[in-house]
């Protein structure tokens, strides 16, 4: 018993190469060079816009951070003022001149506990 190669096989194997599509489709839409240019320009614009929004966002954070820094500095300044006020009010001279101190009496006698 003998086998025969089909005719089709013989025909395909004769014209086929490695990595070559054997079937080609042609698009119905054709883009010309102008369209290509516009598309590239659009892509660049989109990328630019993305960059711009990100940069603006970062700058917005900068302003927010600066605002917080200013607030911290303001509160720090307020704290310093309060500390100064506290130190003035609790200074020995201020305490001695206070009404409470003036109404106090010196101890008449001191006894030591053993």
């Amino acid at each position: 018993m003998t086998y025969q190669r089909s005719t089709t096989y013989n025909r395909r194997s004769g014209s086929m190469r490695r990595n070559q599509n054997s079937v080609a489709y042609s698009s119905a839409v054709k883009l010309g060079p102008v369209t290509h240019t516009v598309l590239v320009a659009l892509m660049i614009t989109v990328l630019g816009l993305i960059y711009l929004t990100q940069a603006t966002k970062a700058t917005a954070y900068d302003y927010e951070a600066q605002g917080i820094d200013d607030k911290i500095a303001e509160m720090q300044s307020e704290k310093t003022d309060l500390e100064v006020e506290n130190a003035r009010l609790t200074a020995l001279e201020a305490v001695q001149d206070s009404a409470v101190a003036k109404s106090m009496e010196a101890p008449k006698e001191t006894n030591n506990l053993r």
Binding site: S77, T80, D81, E83, V84, A87, T90
Partner: peptide
């Protein structure tokens, strides 16, 4: 410790 010299803005 009690403050004897402070800074004021």
């Amino acid at each position: 410790p009690v403050k004897l010299v402070l800074n004021e803005n």
